[in-house]
Amino acid sequence: MKRFHVHAHVIDLQASIAFYSRLFGAEPTRIESDYAKWMIEDPRINFAISTRGQAVGIDHLGFQTDDAQELAELKTRAQEADMSLLDQGETSCCYARSDKYWITDPQGIAWEHFRTLDNIPVFGESAQEAQPQAAACCTALSRGKPVDAAGKPVSSCC
Rank of each mutant, 00 (worst) to 15 (best):
A68K: 03
I45S: 04
D87I: 11
Q88P: 11
Y20Q: 07
G62F: 07
D148W: 02
Q107I: 09
D82Y: 03
R44G: 08
P28C: 12
L117N: 03
D82L: 06
G108E: 10
C158D: 06
E112N: 11
T29N: 12
F114S: 10
G57C: 12
A150Q: 14
S21L: 01
R97T: 08
T51N: 06
C94K: 00
A149Y: 09
Y95C: 04
S21I: 02
V154G: 15
N119C: 10
A72E: 09
Q88N: 15
T65L: 04
V10N: 00
Y95E: 00
S50F: 07
Q64M: 13
F63N: 11
A130S: 14
A140Y: 07
E32S: 10
P106R: 05
D66H: 11
Q131W: 09
S16L: 03
I11W: 12
K75E: 13
E125F: 09
S16E: 11
I103Y: 06
C93I: 05
T139F: 07
S92E: 02
A127D: 15
Q79S: 12
H60P: 14
D59F: 02
E129C: 13
P132A: 12
R22W: 09
A18H: 14
R22N: 12
A26L: 04
E90R: 01
R77W: 04
P153K: 03
R30C: 07
A81L: 02
Q14C: 06
R22V: 15
P43K: 01
V154N: 10
T104E: 12
D34P: 08
S50G: 12
D87R: 08
Q133K: 13
S50H: 03
L74A: 02
S142A: 15
G25A: 12
T139P: 02
Q69H: 08
D42Y: 13
M1G: 15
A55S: 07
M1V: 15
Q64T: 12
I17L: 00
C138H: 11
H9R: 07
L61N: 10
S92M: 01
P106L: 06
P132F: 11
S33T: 14
L13K: 00
A149K: 14
A96F: 05
Q133V: 14
R44K: 09
S126F: 04
F114W: 08
G53M: 00
K37N: 11
E90Q: 05
Q107T: 10
A134Y: 03
R77E: 08
Q128P: 14
C138K: 05
L74V: 09
F24L: 03
I109T: 13
S21F: 02
S21E: 04
S92F: 00
Y101T: 09
S84F: 03
I45C: 05
A134V: 08
A150I: 08
A127N: 14
I17W: 00
A15H: 08
L13I: 01
L71V: 06
W102D: 10
A26R: 01
V122R: 00
P132K: 09
Y101K: 02
K75N: 10
L13M: 01
E73W: 03
I11N: 14
Y95N: 01
S142T: 15
A78I: 08
T116R: 13
D42I: 15
C157L: 01
R30Y: 07
A135V: 13
P43A: 04
G89S: 05
A127C: 15
S50I: 05
A36S: 09
Q107M: 13
S126M: 10
C157F: 00
P132Q: 11
